[in-house]
Simulated scan of single mutants.
Amino acid sequence: MTENVFYQAPSVTRTARERLNGHRAIVIWFTGLSGAGKTTLANALEAELHRQGRRTLVLDGDNVRQGLCSDLGFSAKDRHENLRRVGEMARMTMEAGVITLAAFISPFEEDRARVRDIVGPENLFEIYVRCPLAVCETRDVKGLYRKARQGEISHFTGVSAPYEEPTSAHLVLDTSVLSASECVGRMLESLQSRLALPGG
């Protein structure tokens, strides 16, 4: 019930925070299979943005599930709720003037569209971290694909659950052929105009 809940306008606006920071705040959303390199690229991009003096925050799927979403499982309903919460958190950190980098498998277009609606299409930069399933399985550092193949994990994306490839991502990075540094270079080039303040 929300009839007795009222929006409280901030005394310091997002625009004022962006002006103080010297850059725009946006949400950079990394989607792709487990093992594709989402978190690796998010962390690498954050390190470079931090080096440039920009305010950043990485939201990672595993980390979020140990705190904010520790009460959720992996049913379809819980997965939808997990990404809804992440979308709301990303919106709040963006409103705080922070460049928010979110690394989540987010296999369904429905959930990615919902996040887009939450943060605003103009504020979301979607990166599809593409990598063939066979390559992702060879990188199986967490042993999740092995467990999924052995039936120890059900509804595992790419094995027993589908992944819907984005059709309108702002940037597609194939990590089976591109190095991390090459990916960072392409991301920085693509994001340059989006992070610039109006008239900057």
Rank of each mutant, 00 (worst) to 15 (best):
V27I: 14
N123K: 15
Y145V: 02
R116H: 05
H155L: 10
D111T: 12
T15W: 09
R19G: 06
Q52P: 00
G185T: 06
A134W: 04
I26N: 07
K147Q: 15
S154N: 14
G67Q: 05
E137R: 07
T167N: 04
S106L: 07
A90L: 05
G32T: 10
G143I: 10
W29D: 06
R54K: 15
A113V: 07
P166H: 09
E3C: 04
G200I: 05
A76S: 14
T15F: 10
M92D: 01
F104K: 02
T100W: 10
L83V: 15
L101E: 00
V119D: 02
V135Q: 08
D140N: 04
H50G: 00
L49F: 08
R51F: 08
G199M: 07
I127R: 03
A36M: 04
L41A: 07
L133A: 09
P10K: 13
D62T: 06
I28W: 02
R19I: 06
R194W: 14
L68F: 12
L197T: 02
R112T: 13
S75C: 13
S176G: 14
R114V: 02
T2P: 00
N63L: 12
A96L: 11
C183W: 01
N43G: 12
P162M: 10
A44E: 06
D78N: 12
A47L: 11
P162L: 13
R91V: 00
V177C: 09
G53F: 13
G32A: 05
